[in-house]
Design a protein around this nucleic acid. Structure first.
Length: 223
DNA sequence: CGAATTTGACCAGCGC
DNA sequence: GCGCTGGTCAAATTCG
């Protein structure tokens, strides 16, 4: 099994990478803590360099945010053709929620590419203006909330359209830390948990996961 | 009894 | 302007 993630950094606004990583790097209870740290050490600017470490199998796209926003047809251009076209990968492009609902909805078929319609892309563009950097990934797990080393407080739950599983909203409990995350299950495969982080932590994880295992430079890049 | 979660209400953005 | 939807708030409830 491979877990999959999407890194998107709108502050840098340059690269967007989609990558896969071996499941043996995940799951503390789910080891997610370690895998996330590994992820976040990959600067977006290096996205095309496909880190040679064992965590990253591929880094697939060099499409820039600007390119994506120029026109929809540009977004649907050649960069994306290099993607692994597995069904499991499709959801990750664009706004995760939008893609999920899009795949389920089944409408707008003629305009679809990688599961994202022109109309949806316009919506995505409009909503993206003020968003914090986001990072999302999906993991096969029985538990909804992965142990990522941070302490979260649930502040909402919502049933989103065309899904039987509610989406949960969490905020980091640390003072002045505005990081949020959303947790939901994939409609097509309820075993898959989709976690979306928004923002970056301004502090270290609340419980120590033997951080001595991690190189010291990792501690400077918190989520 | 304080902290955490639940859940209905509310709000903002968007399409029609 | 209205309705739909996703996201957030906050009072009520549950839990440790």
């Amino acid at each position: 099994m491979l877990n999959q993630g999407l890194f998107e950094d709108q502050e840098v606004s340059t690269q967007m990478g989609f990558f896969s990583f071996p499941s043996n790097l995940t799951l503390p209870s789910l080891g997610c803590h370690q895998s996330l740290k590994a992820f976040t050490t990959i600067p977006p600017s290096l996205a095309s360099d496909a880190p040679s470490s064992n965590l990253t199998e591929t880094l697939l796209s060099s499409a820039t945010t600007k390119q994506r926003e120029d026109t929809t047809s540009d977004f649907r251009g050649s960069q994306l053709l290099s993607l692994h076209r597995s069904a499991a990968n499709l959801w990750a492009w664009g706004d995760v929620g939008e893609c999920l609902s899009n795949k389920r909805g089944g409408g707008d078929l003629e305009d679809h590419h990688l599961g994202v319609s022109t109309l949806k892309m316009k919506k995505i563009k409009a909503r993206r203006k003020v968003r914090e950097p986001r990072f999302c990934f999906k993991t096969m797990s029985d538990v909804d909330v992965l142990d990522d080393g941070y302490k979260w407080r649930k502040y909402g739950q919502k049933v989103v359209k065309n899904t039987q599983h509610p989406r949960s909203y969490y905020r980091c409990t640390q003072d002045n830390c505005r990081v949020k995350k959303r947790v939901e299950r994939l409609a097509e495969d309820p075993r898959m948990v989709i976690t979306t982080y928004e923002g970056r932590h301004i502090h270290s994880p609340s419980h120590d996961m033997e951080d001595s295992q991690a190189p010291s430079h990792l501690n400077n890049f918190f989520w």
